[in-house]
């Protein structure tokens, strides 16, 4: 019983830290965008990271007394979704390589990084969504 209470307190502390770090990153992003003459995407990456952490932290803190957000099924689904996403990225990179090699499409380095970054996140979430609907894997 004590262990469960400790875990709960640890989780609450983790969510509070997540919110604080989110606010710091968000502020860094806003300051970078407002006062420094850097590449525009750097500031917006920090801002979006901060907002995401802040929102996740607040939602989890509000829902702390409800059901566990993770259990054995969601962990299993999450690991499968990441594996599929990794495979998807491998295929995606192979296609990009051939497109570039044959000079059909030319990507800049930053565009390629963005494509891979968002491609992995979006594909992992899509796979997770479909596996959630399926039940078991």
């Amino acid at each position: 019983m004590k262990k469960t209470k400790d875990n709960k307190e640890k989780k609450i502390l983790y969510y509070k830290r997540l919110i604080i770090i989110g606010v710091i990153i968000l502020l860094i992003g806003l300051i970078l965008q407002a006062f420094f003459n850097l590449h525009s995407s750097i500031g917006s990456i920090f801002t979006s990271m901060g907002v995401t952490m802040l929102v996740i932290g607040i939602i989890r803190l509000i829902r702390k007394n409800q059901f566990p957000e993770k259990d054995e099924r969601t962990r299993k689904i999450g690991s499968y979704a990441l594996s599929y996403s990794w495979l998807f990225t491998l295929v995606f990179l192979t296609i990009i390589f051939w497109l570039d090699y044959l000079e059909l499409v030319v990507f800049s380095t930053s565009a390629l990084f963005s494509l891979i970054f968002f491609g992995m996140i979006i594909s992992a979430n899509i796979f997770r969504y479909f596996l959630e609907k399926k039940g078991d894997i």
Partner: peptide, 18 residues
Amino acid sequence: GVRRETILFLEKGKYNPS
């Protein structure tokens, strides 16, 4: 200590529990 959805899928026989 699991999510409600897990119980739902268990009842439907769609999830093989540990």
